[in-house]
């Protein structure tokens, strides 16, 4: 399956891009994607990133599906 990963703030700076398509095996979870991202960008592992799937915060056990939009969300600080 193909998913789109969006990066923000420090994660965008680490990845060097705002978004990137990823191909994952069927049945993959957010945990699998996180492992792929941490392997591609080791500095990401040092950040306390959370993930959102299709605009909602999601646990690492979440199954992913074709076309999902996954966001890499470092600690937020609006206001």
């Amino acid at each position: 399956m193909r998913v789109n990963v969006r990066f923000f703030a420090v994660s965008r700076e680490i990845a060097g891009m705002a978004q990137q398509p990823h191909t994952l095996p069927e049945g993959a979870t957010l945990q699998d994607l996180q492992a792929q991202l941490f392997a591609d960008y080791p500095a990401l592992a040092a950040q306390r990133v959370r993930f959102a799937v299709n605009l909602t915060y999601a646990p690492l056990t979440s199954p992913l599906h074709e076309g999902d939009e996954i966001a890499c969300i470092p600690p937020v600080g609006g206001g």
């Binding site: 703030a9 420090v10 959102a52 915060y57 470092p74 937020v76 600080g77 609006g78 206001g79």
Partner: peptide, 21 residues
């Protein structure tokens, strides 16, 4: 908002910059 909204701020000083949370 500060706890959950996906919004980030980066501070710029005379001698550097950093994301704040």
């Amino acid at each position: 908002i500060k706890e959950i909204a996906p919004i980030w701020k980066k501070e710029f000083w005379a001698d550097g910059a950093a994301w704040r949370s």
